[in-house]
Design a protein around this nucleic acid. Structure first.
Length: 90
DNA sequence: TATGAGCGG
């Protein structure tokens, strides 16, 4: 499950996010989005967890909590298209 | 160097 993490500290790193979520379950990969021009963190990132149950638990546990000195927002990432009949840009 | 809503190097 892809997890969207925002309001992160600009000093927060991917490994710190991974270790943070690993405390609640297995983390496949954690990524922080950096600016392409300044090369600095945009302040948000994504965490991928193979176990959906642990992912939801991590979201409910880490959402609106303090991390690295700043309160973070943890939510499910871009909802995948659960219906191919919906949308359809063509 | 600093900043602070938001979905991707």
């Amino acid at each position: 499950m892809n997890i969207f993490v925002a309001k992160l500290s600009y000093q927060t790193t991917e490994e710190k996010l991974e270790q943070l979520f690993q405390k609640y379950g297995e983390v496949a990969n954690a990524k922080i989005i950096f600016d392409k021009y300044e090369g600095r963190s945009k302040g948000y990132g994504f965490v991928e967890m193979p176990n959906d149950d642990e992912a939801l638990e991590a979201i409910n546990s880490l959402n609106d909590t303090e991390f690295d000195g700043r309160q973070i927002v943890v939510k499910k990432a871009r909802p995948k298209e659960d219906n191919d009949s919906r949308g359809g840009r063509n």
